[in-house]
Design a protein around this nucleic acid. Structure first.
Lengths: 139, 139
DNA sequence: ATATAAAAGATATTAATTATTCATTGATAA
DNA sequence: TTATCAATGAATAATTAATATCTTTTATAT
């Protein structure tokens, strides 16, 4: 798996540095859709000298070659997801947690919408907002 | 119409200032989902002394009392829409134009998703991305 | 008309993100 | 093996959207 990523980077003419692989692995091994800041803190033990700018640059890089996706839940900062297949997200309005939504998505046939809007449609994002299992208790 | 908004503001204990009515009217009379900055520029002739902070404060206010909605298409800044009914938006990846999408939306029954995620769901946002009629010509 | 409480305007501040700079690393060719 | 050169990482500065603060002005009720 890690071999794959390394070679995929090289195929794109991008060096497979330890920092880049580490950032990708964090995303691959979590379901929590961390922000750049969160990833940065998570790597501070392993890479005490790494700069936040490196995290941002790497995330931009990985997004551009399609290894991860950037999601914007409408709050202050971006979140990142190594699951690049289209799938909806759900956001807790209280604790800002972001989860994947299974079992539902927009029909991938964009024909009707293209006809109505006259756009050429490439992708979509679907977000739900509410209270997560923990936070809804205190409502 | 403008009477309605003015009285609605007063009913909420909010002063109906010319600036506020003007900002609301801009949104009511356009389909273009302007940003705060765009609204600010659009009012600069009519209110040469108005500050950008006033625009932001008013937009926050109008959102809070449900007269407009804030949308986040995943770009740099927020957009605003006086159509507060849930409806999808479509974003041109080239010129950043934002349009409404008619004829399709997420089923408003959130039951299945609530069951899968264990969230209490309150709302959703659906965004499509692609190229608008003008920009798709140059692809 | 006036008092007063809220709002406007100006400016400063914050926070996320991006750009710039420079030293370092690492691959490649001799 | 080593010199060279481009790419990268790290530190810092810069940018930009949005918010907070403070003083002056204005809308509204009396």
């Amino acid at each position: 798996m890690e071999e794959n990523v390394a070679s995929l980077l090289k195929k794109n003419g991008i060096k497979a540095t330890p920092q880049r692989l580490a950032i990708y692995n964090i995303l691959k091994n979590t379901k929590s859709h961390p922000s750049a800041e969160t990833i940065y803190k998570g790597l501070s033990k392993q890479f005490p000298t790494m700069s936040l700018a490196t995290v941002y640059k790497t995330l931009g890089l990985l997004s551009r070659i399609g290894l991860i996706q950037e999601i914007n839940v409408g709050e202050d900062s971006f979140r990142y997801d190594a699951n690049t297949a289209p799938h909806p997200h759900i956001v807790c309005l209280k604790c800002k947690r972001v989860d994947d939504v299974g079992g539902y998505d927009v029909p991938q046939s964009y024909d009707t919408i293209a006809k109505n809007t006259h756009y050429k449609i490439l992708s979509h994002q679907l977000y739900f907002y509410g209270y997560c299992p923990e936070c809804k208790k205190g409502e």
